[in-house]
Write a protein that binds this DNA or RNA. Structure first.
Length: 358
DNA sequence: ATTGGGAATCTGGTTACCTCA
DNA sequence: CCTGAGGTAACCAGATTCCCA
């Protein structure tokens, strides 16, 4: 069993997931998407890759996410990520003519028409993270968007309260630079961001601007949302990894317990039947070509009558060929001791490479 | 009044780019 | 012209703060 597990960013994919079907989803209750995607790369690698892929964009962006966020695609706590229909949510960086498209000409295509606040945050959009416009003090655009999105089912009183709050916040922001606004993104905005996160776990400036424009948010807000989203993803992944490690530990503990018990039985058997002393010492080795387990036996000094050499290593294919007595008992003992011996033997005979290697 | 979720902020690290000696 | 140092900007992860439902 390969226990190449990691918390958080896996340094490499868990190859055993491909090799050992016994560690499948049904056993563990979650799918082993661990470390099989971009999340398994180091940030430096990702950064390097991103920069290589950004050459086409010139100086417009510095980092590009080239891989979709696959890491959580298979996890139970994440909704099915690939079920969205591209036609239902359009991403500005995927449709070049977005700006010129007529709004919601195809029904649910835009999906966020409710967010369409007439030219609210254009100034902020133009300047991206400019200190003045994207500073924490600037609440105007985001609030207006929020107001526009949520006012559908509200009473006038609610709207008045909201307006009052916003004006209060705005005034606070104007007079106090340290005031920190809190904005709850609407469901539509969150859903849209989620969808785009499934496409790109990181944003380039173009995508950020487009998303911000689409959602009537400040680019800084989009950027922060993606940062927090990545953090949440990693946290969830860590939880899943911990759970998996816990299960592995339990499995290994149980296996250890079972083997200890078996060892005790064999020791008891050995004291009652001394011929077990004649069994050669056995070690398990790994076949380098196919990574299967092979057994190598080392006969010890002449206890079986004709073995005069002190240390003679042979493979199991020749084990005990001279010992014709106690064959039944020996077979029984070997069957208990080396449950894989017959398979390994057959495998070794099939593969000529093994003969050469041995 | 309490609490959890999440938006926002802070901090430290990395990299790319530019300028200049 | 080349090179290395220094400065700057942008981005990110991680930790933290703190607002609000």
């Amino acid at each position: 069993m390969e226990l190449a597990l990691s918390l958080g960013d896996a340094p490499k994919p868990f190859t055993f997931l491909d090799k050992t079907p016994k560690l499948s989803n049904k056993d563990l209750g979650f799918c082993m998407g661990l470390g099989t995607s971009s999340g398994s790369r180091s940030s430096d690698e990702k950064t390097r890759e991103n920069r290589e892929s950004e050459e086409d964009d010139g100086d417009e962006r510095r980092r590009v996410s080239s891989d979709p966020p696959l890491q959580l695609d298979l996890l139970p706590f994440t909704p099915v990520l690939r079920t969205h229909q591209p036609s239902q949510l359009r991403f500005p960086w995927l449709t070049d003519n977005l700006a010129s498209e007529p709004a919601s000409s195809d029904g649910p295509g835009r999906g966020l028409d409710v967010n369409r606040f007439p030219t609210v945050a254009t100034a902020a959009e133009e300047t991206d993270d400019g200190a003045a416009l994207s500073s924490p003090n600037s609440t105007v655009s985001s609030f207006q968007m929020d107001f526009c999105v949520r006012n559908g089912g509200r009473s006038k009183r609610d709207l008045d309260v909201e307006t009052e709050r916003a004006s209060s916040r705005a005034s606070d922001d104007e007079e106090n630079g340290s005031t920190r606004k809190k904005l709850r993104l609407s469901k539509e905005q969150s859903a849209f961001l989620e969808e785009s996160f499934k496409e790109h776990s990181t944003l380039n400036p173009k995508q950020k601007l487009a998303l911000a424009k689409q959602l009537n948010l400040r680019p800084r807000q989009v950027e922060v949302w993606f940062q927090n989203r990545r953090a949440r993803t990693k946290l969830k992944q860590t939880e899943v990894d911990c759970e998996y490690l816990k299960r592995c530990c339990e499995t290994l503990t149980e296996e250890n317990r079972r083997l200890q018990k078996e060892l005790q039985e064999l020791r008891a058997l050995k004291t009652s039947q001394p011929f077990y002393m004649q069994l050669p010492a056995t070690t398990l080795t790994m076949c380098p070509s196919c990574e299967r387990v092979a057994t190598t036996t080392t006969t010890t000094s002449g206890t079986n009558g004709n073995a005069n050499n002190n240390t003679t290593a042979t493979t199991t294919t020749t084990t005990n060929t001279n010992n014709t007595t106690n064959s039944a008992a020996m077979s029984l003992a070997k069957a208990r001791l080396y449950p894989f011996a017959s398979q390994v033997q057959a495998h070794m005979q099939q593969a000529p490479a093994h003969q050469a290697a041995s």
